[in-house]
Amino acid sequence: MKRKNNQLPELPPQAKHHMGIKARNAISNTFIHILLVIITIIWLVPFVCIILQSFRVESTHMVGYVIPKDWGLDNYIALFDTDFPKWYINTLVTAIITALLQTVIVLCMSYTLSRFRFKGRKLLMRFMLILGMFPGMLTMIILYRVLKDIGMTEANAVPGLILVYIASSGMGYYVSKGFFDTIPKSLDEAARIDGATRFQILTKVILPLAKPIVIYTILTAFMAPWGDFVFARYVSMNVSSGMNVAVGLFSWLNKDMIDGRYTMFCAAGVLVALPVALLFIFLQKYYVEGVTGGAVKG
């Protein structure tokens, strides 16, 4: 299946009979193309279904067919009579602020751990590794109570959410530390000989080289708040004006609501997914660099 090169100096005995390597290659490539088409269809079917159903007018229920009988924008228009625009703005604000501040924190953390050799560095990293093994879910109860005490829950959930997202974001330094590790240290040393301070090295030498990882961090930080519904649900505590899209839309699919809201959920889903997915696909290159680097360097 994966013959990469057809200019072999000498053919292995088993490949010699029947047909030439070119023909075999052509057949296996055709086969793989067919397989890829099938895979792509499987991967895209749910998204196509969401889009199609968001245009369905004749009923708002869950039905056993995909292609609408009557097409229209009714579901999209109906969204504006609900709290959906409020949720959308909440999430967008959370995502933008989180993305910016979280990136700063993560970069500080990872740059330091990658570049400096100070006392207690290994201990600190090991300590954070151990902290990370505790299920984060546990801490929600107390974070909720603390936020409630300082008035950052329910209708004011957005600042509370942002605070918690940012405050604990230093734990996720692994991927970008891996990236910084690959930037040769000789660059730092050269700059240092030229008399640059550490601060100047960071801003003038390292950051320009770190563009991919900065974009990766911003992108992942921006996407996370759109999907968080566990902690966001805790913090908004059934107060609609403090919800984000995930919490709000999740409530539309419970048993009492689903019949009236199913197609609206699809419409809302399209509106939420569209900007996030477009942004992602636009910046895909950087994401790939990030995940690959992260997986290789652990």
């Binding site: 890829l36 895979i39 991967w43 895209l44 839309l249 199913y262 996030v276």
Partner: peptide
């Protein structure tokens, strides 16, 4: 092909998973 597959990462999970669950 890559871009098509990557949709499942790009779309927030609560939409895709809730929809698939239904």
């Amino acid at each position: 092909w890559r871009t098509c597959l990557v949709f499942t990462i790009a779309v927030p999970q609560f939409i895709s998973l809730l929809y698939v669950s239904k």
